[in-house]
């Protein structure tokens, strides 16, 4: 398959790799931020209780 026919597949491969990896990074970062917020508020609650 020459360039004319093959390029959509080659670009598709490259874009799909980056799309999946970036979505995973964003999901992980969002979850980490939420968990750290919860961790912070729980730590304060534990401190208040002594």
């Amino acid at each position: 398959m020459e360039f004319q026919e093959a390029w959509p597949y080659v670009v598709g491969v490259y874009m799909s790799i980056w799309a999946v990896l970036l979505i995973y990074v964003i999901v992980l970062q969002n979850k980490l931020a939420a968990v750290k917020r919860e961790l912070g508020s729980l730590s304060k609650a534990v401190e208040r209780k002594g």
Partner: peptide, 13 residues
């Protein structure tokens, strides 16, 4: 002579 452009996928796959 045919250039196999799809072979470039190898470097990512």
């Amino acid at each position: 002579e045919l250039v196999q452009f799809s072979q470039k996928i190898f470097y990512f796959h």
